[in-house]
Design a protein around this nucleic acid. Structure first.
Lengths: 208, 208, 208, 208
DNA sequence: TATGAATGAGACTTCATTCAT
DNA sequence: GATGAATGAAGTCTCATTCAT
């Protein structure tokens, strides 16, 4: 579970430095502003204030830059969630905090939300595969949480944990995507509680 | 309620005929096999057994072809669901049948599943916008179902119906995408019931 | 000097008939309205009220149609001038009438003027060569007139008749082109006299 | 009066350099050799000894290249004439020198003559419009000359200066076009004097 | 005669990546 | 380390012409 450390030394062997971050930030900004298909290397270089060729001193290819971007941003994203939910005891508290932290982080950085929810999904299969690889870290975190919940009898044990995870992640993803497509103009975090409630108790009105 | 008929006369004014369908089927096959970015017009034409130029007798542009593909396929997809769930009375039965029909249709045509779940999502903003427009038909169908459920006190009335829809659609979409990414090699339809169960009653084990 | 008769039987061996003329008129109309590069065979066929293929029953190719158009129209144009100037006796009267008739005919049919002055000149070398071949009939007519003028000592005998012809034709052509480019919105015929005057006596103010 | 300098810094803001000129010269050569419609960007690039893409570092489009070509060449052409005729005092001397310089420049560069007299006239409306814009510089120069001539009572004051200009330009243009169509194989410059004579005193033999 | 659906060659332009400086 | 000019492959669409009906 140490594939992503808190300090971001994950890309061992990769040149780092001020420019490395600078280029990634430029990529996020350019993609958010112009869209995936209009985010040429030249534009990113200009935004970063470096020459086109300089990008290739820090990344082996444009694909590598995009993967690194996702890795970097998603790594922090996941670690923040992981750390925070450790402070909670029960499954339900942890799930709620996961949702809240998920939403908070994206709401705090709408540019990043645009990039990860909309733009990077337009990339080709190869890149998407690698992005999914990184996403897997998050999915595993959710899986753990679910299994923990089942162990402690907080989550119905007969449920397929994979399906549970798909429901949780699918729901969060869809909610965020809708928010981004509405130009991030309403409050996302406030929806954490009702969503948590739905996931936990379902949507059906039943006599109990 | 008649925007999409069962017989597919929806694209009134568009040239139809054997070749029209033939080209759309070829496009589905080529995109599924080679991916969105490797689905050149020439390849689609060859697959359809027509000349490149012939495509432009039936579609105004490549984009128009892709939109028509989605429109055609998604139109049928939605209508099939709409029609089938009318046979059920209660909200829960309808929701279950919606999920089952959703899964059945994609499982019956894995090529189409690949195209709609993975490949067409890589398209440019313009095309994506139009695809979303068509998808909206499905989302509205779900919305109706939810509101009906709330009217009949089957669905908790305090829930935001938009959030409920996002949970349902997000979950189905995520489940199908996972299935497609695992090469459609397990049974999708069989998961309809547990998913329905989770959506309806939530994941939490509670004393009642 | 009988390459173009008054009755248009010049294209011996060519199918004629109502449709032949109909297609040529359609071509003139379409080229005048849409320009040379937007005058597709399909558009001309539609304007003529026939099928695309029908055009090829009357013309061997699009090029043949355009050449026939020019031949037909220019043949009439030249013959009208030839006939009318025969009614005059002196060189100067004949030249004036040539200019007037040249202008009158184009002013009476601005569509044709657009086609011959602007649009057909955008055609490729091959077609242009053939058009020039037809134009040669007009140039020869002017040549004859000049030589006649020199024989009767109306035109300076030391002048190279080819240059004289180039001045006359070049001037008329430039004047008409300017008129067409100003959307044919002023009176062209009224300029015949001053132009005639300039050609005859030059532009210089000299004491005599 | 300073729209075109002698040194060619007119296209301020446009990337210049050896390659810029090199590509323009290549375009002239290719168009002269193969004709307008067979002058593909690839061919021009090859002739210039650069990659296809390099052309787009110096010109925004093929159209831009062709316009720049005309601008560059015509700009020099006009300036040379303007400068040279300033050395003469009388209208007649100036007109003669204009004609001579016009002919000399084209005779010195038959390739350019082919391009401007024949090939570029086949271009589409948009390009032609821009070419005419540039030509207007030359027409204005002639206009000035004529008005000057009228002020100094060298040119008949009752003449419409626009018509005079049309006669002068139309004549020169027709003469050069004939020369180009005869493969530039006779002496053009030698015809300057007789043409000048015709323009000045007309073609008519009159007793005085 | 007449139709019109089908054909298929051909070109402009973009942009990730390189490499001489 | 940093630059940025140069590279060159690759794809959508048009339209004159044909030919089975």
């Amino acid at each position: 579970m140490n594939t992503h450390s808190l300090k971001g030394e994950t890309n061992v062997g990769k040149k780092k430095g001020a420019k490395y971050e600078q280029i990634i930030e430029a990529a996020v900004a350019v993609i958010a502003r112009f869209g995936y298909h209009q985010a040429q290397v030249a534009k990113i270089a200009k935004e970063a204030g470096v020459a086109d060729g300089t990008i290739y001193l820090y990344f082996t290819s444009k694909e590598d830059l995009l993967i690194s971007l996702f890795e970097e941003k998603m790594g922090q994203f996941i670690e923040t969630i992981r750390t925070r939910i450790q402070t909670k005891q029960t499954f339900e508290e942890k799930l709620l905090l996961l949702i809240q932290t998920h939403f908070e982080q994206l709401q705090a950085n709408p540019q990043l939300a645009i990039v990860t929810q909309l733009e990077l999904r337009q990339s080709n299969k190869e890149l998407r595969k690698k992005i999914n690889q990184i996403l897997k870290g998050y999915l595993l975190l959710i899986d753990e949480l679910i299994k923990e919940g089942q162990s402690s009898a907080s989550v119905k044990q007969q449920l397929d944990s994979r399906l549970v995870r798909q429901m949780i992640f699918g729901t969060l993803d869809e909610v965020v995507t809708n928010w981004v497509m509405k130009d991030c103009k309403y409050d996302l975090v406030v929806q954490a509680k009702p969503i948590h409630q739905m996931l936990v108790s379902g949507i059906s009105e039943r006599l109990s």
